[in-house]
Design a protein around this nucleic acid. Structure first.
Lengths: 215, 215, 215, 215
DNA sequence: GATGAATGAGCCTTCATTCAT
DNA sequence: TATGAATGAAGGCTCATTCAT
């Protein structure tokens, strides 16, 4: 978890200087994220991306082999950001209310990265299979972080023992309930602020753990 | 709820015979659903759709004004099918275990219509705003059905009184937890059968209701 | 000149009843003229014409063989209308001021049928050669009417003898100067009313005749 | 008048090298003029234009945004050519017979550019409004050149004083009588050579000026 | 390493015309 | 006669990618 393994190394390049590659790819990804969010992957042209990234079309194609490459890079960057944000809290997570704090933090990340998360839901399908799988794995790795939080809490006694499978599912639920805010915010926000949402869902999730306890 | 209001009447046509319109559109939608699922909206061509529907391109465009029309028709048909399936159970839903039964049914619908539900998550964005909104409304109408189930249970005494807002959120959770199976099945199914999934999530959801009670 | 030879008889039909043909074709032409003026020949569809004419597409094609047929019928109808209007004045044309009266009348016809005349300038080219020629002949036949007026005036002594070729050219000038009002009205009308225009151009044309006299 | 202001700068491009733009657009316009004259705007395909211009379709669209752009470029080029030709004579126009010389020159331009002038009469309507207006303005600017010739002649005493409005109308008449040769040449040329035409019309026009004098 | 012009396959859509009913 | 659904060739335009400079 401490290892931040940038998987983007797997996207091959024409360029030798690897620092330059990193720098240019950042430009590309930053530009692309915005554009993909605004107009979607298919309605964004490579020209627009290159332009927004401050590169010529030709140049861009020396740091990237296809438009799909860019999409992968984008998805990866998004996941990395989510992961990083979450792992920040995890570091300091301990004690009774660790779970609530992690949930709160994570849901706020989801709130802030709404568009990015939606992007992944919508465009992952456009990726070549291999990369689609990579993105899906990223997705479950994030869930894995929650599993570990739960495990720690149980082992520290801060949480009553939980069935292994249940624990995993609870982690998935946390993940997806965070996402839910991103695709239903347009509706939910009529009645709930993000804080309301966090509060209630937290109760529900914790209730799950407790309730299950007594079941 | 009993009224099956086909909203597709809003998509205008060149053809006068409205029975024919219904028939041809079914051909079109049936063809398109498959193709969209296989290759995505953008990688499916109108010629492919027309061909698969057994129509000439020209003919197809007498029943539809654009490729986007087709996408809308597809989304609408999917929602209609989901709604219909769910409302089937609702009719006979009563008594203590009504909620479990509805959940089970709904989750099975999600399981069966996995690809269709994914399709909606992925392609709704490609719709013109007005129709995108229509599709989103369909989405919450389905959630509304669960709200009503909960209300009925509470009012019949089969469920302990629930805060109004909580009830709504529970309904959303049910909806989205059903969807979760569609986008995480590739992973979850390694450890859970759909029935396992139903069982555990049902417990969690019911726990929510009970647990909340005691909170 | 007295003979109103409807040249439209040359456009063949499927239908026997020739009165019906005449009636239906009138519907078609009336509809088409408006549409062609509004949107031009190419941007008007046969469907629109049929619709506006109160016929089904199929029906229309029983009175007409092609879209070009319709254009020809339209051009012909316009010319017939112009011709008729002009020949009305001719009948009563005599005496010193006959020429001014004819000019005034004709220019007012041009003013009223501005759009129609423009239509002919713009779309004649889209006609099959044979019909294009027919339309061009119509055009010169109208000019011929002015030639005859001049001849009559000369032979009645109301106009000084004019060189034959000059006379013909004057007739063409009258015709085209009438048209000029239609394509330059947008500009000319800033400074001249149609009546100003008539007055001045008449002077110029008459001056031509007189001036030429003394030359 | 000495300033040749190419208005085509208003048509935007993807290409940065503006010399190249000029060169390629010349290829495009040259090809298009021929094709439009031969078959008309609507029956010419963009592929044909690109082909005749020695470009790929894609390439052509880097220099132009639509087929209508091409039509505008064509109309503009034609007007520029006419203007240039006429302004050539104007430069050396002075003395008694200046007007005749200008008329002769202009009518010969019309004779040589017959097809081009017809093209403008026929296809201007297919232009988006804004450009249509531009073309119409070009048209009156050319007329303006004749107005100025007349003014000079009057002020130099080579022509008797003329009413301002009359002068303007005479200029329009010159312009349109030149055009007349283009749309009626098919008929007129049976009896008049272009030189005959020039001679007679010149007399008529000059007669106008003189005759009007005495009126 | 960078640039940006060139490419051309392919897409969505239109519409004049026909023909079975 | 009248209807209107069906046809399919063709058209305008886009855009990911390449490559000469």
């Amino acid at each position: 978890m401490g290892i931040k393994l940038s998987r983007t190394g797997d996207v091959p390049t024409q360029i030798k200087n690897s620092d330059l590659v990193k720098r240019r790819r950042k430009q590309i990804v930053d530009a692309a994220v915005q554009l993909f969010i605004e107009k979607g992957f298919h309605k964004t042209t490579t020209r627009q991306i290159a332009g927004a990234a401050g590169l010529s079309t030709g140049s861009m194609y020396e740091y990237v082999n296809s438009k799909e490459d860019i999409l992968y890079l984008v998805c990866d960057a998004i996941h990395e950001e989510v992961e990083e944000a979450v792992s920040g809290v995890l570091a300091s997570a301990g004690g009774r209310d660790a779970l609530s704090r992690v949930i709160r933090e994570y849901f706020h990340v989801c709130n802030n990265m709404s568009d990015h998360i939606l992007l992944i839901y919508q465009e992952t399908q456009s990726l070549p299979v291999q990369w689609r799988n990579r993105v899906l794995e990223n997705e479950v790795r994030i869930t894995g972080m929650f599993v570990r939080v739960l495990e720690n809490l149980v082992s520290s006694g801060d949480l009553a023992p939980l069935d292994e499978r249940l624990m995993e599912l609870v982690a998935h639920n946390i993940t997806v309930l965070g996402h839910m805010w991103t695709f239903r915010r347009w509706f939910l926000s009529r009645q709930y602020s993000i804080d309301d949402y966090v509060t209630i869902q937290t109760k529900i999730i914790l209730g799950t753990c407790d309730g299950q306890n007594s079941a």
